[in-house]
Amino acid sequence: MMTVYLPSLIGGMLLGLSAAMLLVVNGRIAGISGILGRLLGGRQVWTNAAFLLGLLAGPFLYGAAFGRWPNVTIVASWPVVLVSGLLVGIGTRMGSGCTSGHGILGLARFSKRSLAATATFLVAGIAAATIMGAVR
């Protein structure tokens, strides 16, 4: 029964390892919004592009390891997905980072700002899920 959690466990371990490696090797926080921002701004192009390509390669590596594609079901319409993505992008700029930067490395470094940001992400996510569940 525990094997059902194995892909998530491995994914979390790889995410933590890659975030730690980026911090140790390059002194950079593995916040995806910052990495994408630096890439689009033309700064540290090779490092940022390699990190993002590694993220995009994830489903292919999963398929190679487990012999099938990850099971992902999106029940929202494409306009809802696009607007949601835009709002998340705006939120990451307003919050000076995203869940990966604040939640993984910020909390590990005992950053008070990251603790406040991560708590805000969680409360907002719980509230949104609760409201959407009530609306259905």
Rank of each mutant, 00 (worst) to 15 (best):
M1E: 11
M1I: 05
T3I: 10
T3F: 14
T3A: 15
L6C: 05
P7V: 10
P7F: 11
P7Q: 12
P7R: 12
G11D: 08
M13T: 11
L14S: 07
L14M: 12
L15D: 01
G16A: 12
A19L: 03
A20K: 10
M21F: 11
M21K: 02
L23F: 03
V24G: 06
I29F: 08
A30N: 08
I32D: 04
S33M: 07
G34R: 07
I35C: 11
G37M: 13
G37K: 12
R38M: 13
L39F: 15
L40F: 14
G41K: 09
G42W: 05
G42F: 01
G42C: 13
R43W: 05
Q44S: 12
V45E: 03
N48C: 14
N48D: 15
A49D: 01
A49N: 00
L52D: 03
L52H: 00
L56I: 13
L56C: 13
A57H: 07
A57M: 09
G58K: 06
G58V: 12
P59V: 07
F60N: 06
L61I: 14
A65Y: 07
G67E: 05
R68Q: 14
W69Y: 11
P70A: 03
V72Y: 03
V72R: 04
V72M: 04
V72S: 02
T73D: 01
I74P: 11
A76F: 14
A76P: 09
S77Q: 10
V80C: 03
V80Y: 05
V80N: 00
G85P: 15
L86S: 00
L86C: 08
L87E: 01
V88K: 10
G91W: 05
M94V: 15
G95S: 15
G97V: 00
G97P: 04
C98Q: 12
S100I: 08
G101L: 03
H102S: 06
H102P: 03
L105M: 15
G106A: 06
G106F: 09
A108M: 14
F110I: 02
K112Q: 09
R113E: 11
L115D: 01
L115P: 00
F121E: 01
V123E: 00
A124T: 15
A124H: 09
A124N: 01
G125W: 03
G125K: 01
G125R: 00
T130Q: 11
I131R: 09
I131D: 12
G133T: 10
A134T: 09
V135D: 10
